[in-house]
Amino acid sequence: MKIKVSFILNGLQVTVETEAHRRLLDLLRDDLNLTGTKEGCAIGECGACTVVMNKLAVNSCLVLAGQIDGAEIITIEGLMKNGALHSLQQKFIEKGAVQCGFCTPGMIMSAYALLLSNKNPDEEEIKEAIAGNLCRCTGYKQIIEAIADSEI
């Protein structure tokens, strides 16, 4: 059965018709063509699918379409402003925090949620914020440095 859900996506009000049991991840990628958000494990362990929902980092593989009515959701596509990369995106490039890039959108969204509530996180706070995001390429050092250098 299709239902109607309305929510704010990257600053814009959207209404979609979808099934209640559809995962937010699939809704973003397949229905709304926002393929920046990635699917890794599909069970809440890798963080590749992280988006910011009501100012908090969540795994979009663990949220169903029927749960998001009225929510405010930000994906990696929502960070760029007026054609300019967000500071986090810029610093990830500068510090070499991206290799294959698969974990990057999720990492950046976890970092973005951290910066929303804590403008000057220390190294421990950064590590805690990305503990639910796995990277199999770069090593975490560059990622931590990039986040430490970014601003919101």
Partner: peptide, 29 residues
């Protein structure tokens, strides 16, 4: 009942026997 969904959603995804036959999730939010 679904609360945070962090157990039930991966459970449904993996076809866990604990969640077979569910037709309605009651979201209390």
């Amino acid at each position: 009942i679904i609360a945070g969904g962090t157990d039930i959603i991966p459970g449904l995804m993996q076809g866990s026997k604990r969640f077979t036959g569910i037709k309605y999730l009651v979201d209390l939010q």
